[in-house]
Amino acid sequence: MNRPLAPDETRQTVLRLLGEIAPEADLSLVKADVSFRDQLDIDSMDFLNFVVSIHKTFGVEIREADYPKYSTLNGCVEELSANRTR
């Protein structure tokens, strides 16, 4: 990314990436504080691919230990915002 994204923009980008992983999902129904895996039909492979997409799109390094932080929409936005200020 060439410039920091606003939270709303980050949120939309994360949702877009999520839509690529789970194309059948109605993203308008995604609850921001609920784990993706609890509301969408995604498995370990899907979640790994999602994390890889976040890494490639936002240019952030994501440790495996930090995966839980990316398990919700709000978590992704917060972590990516924090990552930009580090």
């Binding site: 370990s44 492979m45 790994l48 994390v51 890889v52 890494h55 390094e61 994501i62 440790r63 495996e64």
Partner: peptide
């Protein structure tokens, strides 16, 4: 697996499967 994945980039990590 945890130690192995620490050495790997996010694109190369292993699933326990």
């Amino acid at each position: 697996l945890k130690e192995e994945n620490l050495k790997r980039s996010v694109t190369d990590r292993l699933l326990y499967g």
